[in-house]
Simulated scan of single mutants.
Amino acid sequence: MTSLKVDEARRLGRSDVSVSALAFGAAPIAGLYTPLPAAVGERTARMALARGMTYVDTAPHYGAGTSETRLGAVLAGVPRDSFTISTKVGRLLRPRQPYESPDDAGFPGEPPLKREWDFGADGIRRSLEGSLERLGLDRVDIVYLHDPDDHEEQVYAEAYPALADLRDQGVIGAIGAGMNQSAMLARFVRRLDLDAVLCAGRYTLLDHSALAGLLPACAERGTSVVIGGVYNSGLLAGGTTFDYAPAPAEVRDRVTRLRRVCRAHGVPLRAAALRFPFGHPAVASVLPGCRTPDEVEDNAAMFERDVPAALWSDLLDAGLLPAGTPVPE
């Protein structure tokens, strides 16, 4: 049997920053897809910290600052050395003009603000200043470049150097990049001095694409990996969507086969999904989003379930994992 503890500390790369093995993704408490009362979001964050999810991830994008503001209300009463927090840069927030339509960003009821892409050096600094104000903090532990898919060259020329200066000044403890793809992340790892990458949806029981380039690059360079989207937007947690769209029939069939193997070992599919990434030595943490206190408790309980080694062997034998995939010991 293999098991992990939610609050097991793991260092990011060569930095002095440590994260909990199970992290708290704070996008849902900003009202992702459907509005969420502030009090519920704040209770969720408090429960996550109490349950050992002491690594908290947020971003200005999440509810146009709502996630950061709600976290700030919670963290005001929490000792600063008891949690690790990451936020992201690349989108600036500004007041929305009367003639402008709301952003179609998946957070109904968010403040009347507009997002503007900005990976320039000044934009990076301004974004972080706004985040610190909303969070009520004087520093954050990790800053990720957020979805720079169309801004790769500006990352090299401006965004990364600005973050490196802030790291040298001690304003941030670690630098990373967070994306829903692995190819560009692999290029960043090879060209930049990143402490971590946040790879969403590309190293799961259903999608192993990060295994081809990103994970070997991280292992070679000593860069830690945080895995987001471990449920592939819900399908591996009992939902019907895969990567934020209705799941194709062949993917649903694969989930049925995965669930059958897990059931034979008495392991919920959610537990296997949370544990799978830790087979690779570069992976430091998994980052599911939690909307309610019940979801926090469910994720924590699933994470700490014992998973027999034979389950991974059966998945390999069934061709549900590619041959040679590293699996948890």
Rank of each mutant, 00 (worst) to 15 (best):
T2P: 11
S3Q: 14
V6W: 01
S15Y: 03
S18Y: 14
S20H: 02
A21F: 03
Y33T: 15
A38G: 08
V40W: 13
R46S: 13
Y55N: 04
H61Y: 15
G65W: 01
G65A: 12
G72F: 09
R80G: 05
D81W: 08
R91K: 14
R96G: 10
P98Y: 08
Y99K: 11
E100K: 08
D104P: 09
L113I: 12
L113D: 06
E116R: 11
D122I: 12
R125C: 05
E129F: 08
R134P: 04
I142W: 01
V143S: 06
D147Q: 08
D150I: 11
A162Y: 04
A164F: 11
L166E: 01
A177Y: 06
M179E: 06
S182K: 06
F188K: 06
R190Q: 13
L192H: 10
A196Q: 08
L205A: 06
T223R: 02
T240N: 12
T241G: 11
D243T: 09
D253Y: 09
R259V: 09
G266M: 10
G266T: 06
A272K: 01
F276H: 14
P277W: 07
C290N: 15
T292K: 15
P293T: 14
N299C: 12
A300H: 07
F303E: 00
R305G: 10
G319A: 07
A323G: 10
P326I: 02
V327P: 06
P328H: 02
E329Q: 13
